[in-house]
């Protein structure tokens, strides 16, 4: 699949999730031509903002929400960011982030302002946030496919969780519908059960560099059938 096709798949997947009331909001993906490749991502307002400078912090989550730097926000304000890099029909890299909302709201959130204010309260005055917002601080999970930087400590496909320099070897690169299905099925089992349509989201095969899944011993690794 080329960049435009991937963008279309992301858009239709978001539309499908939205029609099931699983999204708070979403951004249409856009394709940007970079040197030697095309990048599919959310409409980035900050150049090269596909990676988090301070992985997993409230400030980072707030910045992305404030600037609309995401593919979609799930119904519980968990953040999804999907970015692919393609050369022709070949995928040469991806970032797929699922970041569970780091706070829980005890009041109704009706717009992004409420979400932003809740996070700001937790940062500025956690005591004042008591009774309105509570910190949950669940870790983000980011699946990267990064052939350019492949090394022993930097597996071709890997999962960042807890810390930015934690990389668990992952069996294979993922298309967006597969990623979403795994997120919903793993973390939102009730939704998965009540919306069988999610299971029908059409998974796409993406062409990419051959991956030898051969992680070193005694480290966590992620694989699926």
């Amino acid at each position: 699949m080329n960049a435009k096709q991937i963008a279309r798949v992301i858009a239709t997947t978001c539309q499908a999730l939205n029609s099931l009331d699983l999204l708070f909001t979403y951004n249409n993906p856009c394709v940007v031509s970079l040197e030697g490749c095309d990048r599919v991502s959310w409409p980035a307002k900050i150049p090269d903002s596909t990676k988090a400078p301070s992985f997993g912090t409230l400030e980072q989550y707030l910045e992305w929400v404030r600037n609309g730097e995401f593919t979609c926000l799930l119904f519980d304000y968990s953040l999804i960011r999907a970015s692919y890099e393609c050369v022709g029909n070949t995928v040469v890299g991806h970032n797929l982030l699922y970041w569970p909302c780091p706070v829980g709201f005890l009041v109704e959130v009706s717009c992004l302002r409420d979400l932003r204010e809740g996070i700001e309260m937790c940062i500025d005055s956690p005591r004042q946030a008591h009774g309105v917002v509570s910190l949950t601080m669940r870790t983000p999970m980011r699946f990267d496919f990064d052939p350019d930087r492949e090394s022993d400590d930097h597996p071709l496909v890997h999962l960042h969780t807890q810390f930015d320099d934690t990389r668990m070897s992952v069996q294979r690169a993922m298309d967006f519908p597969s990623f979403i299905k795994k997120v919903i099925r793993t973390f939102y089992r009730n939704k998965w059960a009540s919306h069988p349509e999610i299971g029908c989201l059409h998974e796409q095969s993406i062409d990419h560099k051959e991956i030898q899944f051969d992680p070193p011993q005694h480290v966590f690794q992620v694989s699926w059938g």
């Binding site: 009041v107 009706s110 309260m121 309105v132």
Partner: peptide, 15 residues
């Protein structure tokens, strides 16, 4: 006095 923000006010008095 510590100012109250919108979210807190909403939880106390409604939107």
């Amino acid at each position: 006095l510590l100012p109250i923000n919108y979210l807190t006010a909403k939880s106390r008095y409604g939107a």
